[in-house]
Amino acid sequence: TDKSYFYTVSSTFEYLCLFHYFFSLSEAKEQVLANLANFAYDPKNMEYLRELQVPDLFLDMLTEENENFVEFGMGGLCNLSMDPGCRDIILENDGISLITNHLSNRREETVLSAVTTLMNLTTPATCSQITEPGIVQCMLRFSLAESPRLRNLASVFLQDCCSQEQVRQAELQMQGVQTAIGIPLPE
């Protein structure tokens, strides 16, 4: 009878609990983190992930040294932030500044996730913070980048999230002093 007991508890949610639990113990953090981030892609898992405070966990990853943790955490945020509920949690936890810091990350995948996440976080209330001159300048630089993906994504950001006036202002400012947002430090 013990066995059938186990077979009855195999719902997605309980497995997510299990993942979450193992995350705190095992060495396989990276794998589990990637798993959680991929779970975040499916909207039907959003509520569970929210309940398990996974948005917080992803935000924590952004302060890790391990580049994989950062990449997977940012990927998870990119997936989660499409959902309005998760978006609000990320905003409450001061996600914007944590994410902005990684616009200068050396890994393209991390930067792309960061830009998409910032776009997802844009609401009337947060618009002014996300389209501050430093970030707009950064996106202008990205829109000239060699990588077509980054170029495209930055262009979408400039066209959809910023006003023409803001872009013009940032272009003017770029003639003079520039901010350092989005410029990776030398190796």
Binding site: L18, F19, S26, A28, E30, Q31, V32, A34, N35, A37, N38, Y41, E71, F72, G75, G76, C78, N79, M82, E109, L112, S113, T116, R149, L153
Partner: peptide, 23 residues
Amino acid sequence: CISRPKYREGRRAKAVKVYTINL
């Protein structure tokens, strides 16, 4: 990935990768 514990082994061998809409 070859270090995946048995409890997370799926039907197909896969790499550790996060898919986002950007990819």
